[in-house]
Design a protein around this nucleic acid. Sequence first.
DNA 1: GCTATATACGACTAATATTATCGTATAATA
DNA 2: TATTATACGATAATATTAGTCGTATATAGC
Lengths: 133, 133
Amino acid sequence: MLKITRKVEYALIALRHLQQNKQAKLCSAKTLSLKYDIPQELLAKILQKLSKENIILSVKGPKGGYKISKDPNTINMTKFFEIMEGPMGIVDCYFDSNCEQLSGCTIREPINRINNSIRTMFDKMTLADITFK
Amino acid sequence: MLKITRKVEYALIALRHLQQNKQAKLCSAKTLSLKYDIPQELLAKILQKLSKENIILSVKGPKGGYKISKDPNTINMTKFFEIMEGPMGIVDCYFDSNCEQLSGCTIREPINRINNSIRTMFDKMTLADITFK
DNA sequence: GCTATATACGACTAATATTATCGTATAATA
DNA sequence: TATTATACGATAATATTAGTCGTATATAGC
Ligand code: SF4
Ligand code: SF4
């Protein structure tokens, strides 16, 4: 319960590495997967998503790989989580209304207050809080 | 990602009902399951757990059921979540050390800071914040 | 041009966690 | 003693997450 996904963790590990080696040329998915013991194909897809979102820059071909392309201070964690995993809420009704209980739900309001607290907390936090500190 | 479970939601709905009808005698699992459209057997097990933890009191037999037995102001949400779902952490290594990456993990410290922030937030919140307000 | 290496991307499978159900036992009321 | 309700372990169904595979494309170096 209340877990972040492995996908997000792998993304953060990779981003931290790229951030702290940003003076270096490029770093490939393979290099990162070996260094941090992350399944290569899975990490590759994660890096592709980060690239598509212009958080990192990708270069194809031999000697290719990835490097940081956006200041991690400018990306807040709510946004980052939603880029990686879609809408973020501790219950589904925050972004989807298919809940059986919705019509007569007595806890939706208090639950949404909690939701907003968590979102606010992550809004105030940036990628740099994880990739730097 | 970062979701609470249905089990917890059902528990909160039931507790809110019991709290707001605490002058009433008893309320059965069946009554609650019909009123809130929650699978009866599932809700029954949830109520049994709450009873075992002395959050509610149970009475067997016809005319039996449940009622609140502990002031919801005295139970913080971290404790409540952990009663219902076990150790709470956004990553496993907060309470379990079977992670492949653990030895060379570069994000554990920053992740744990987030973890602590979430726990602190829920420590400051009580069951009454959901069952009353 | 050819080969090797690396990203891009969709489809698929496997593993795990969550949600729900079933069967049986026990207690108490009337 | 029949009925209603809790207690509890085992099992099944479903959803989510994690990981793999196949194929295409780009490019560096020879
Ligand atoms: S808070 Fe209520 S409406 Fe929202 S998902 Fe939970 S049960 Fe459904
Ligand atoms: S933070 Fe690091 S050690 Fe902890 S679970 Fe995630 S990858 Fe594993």
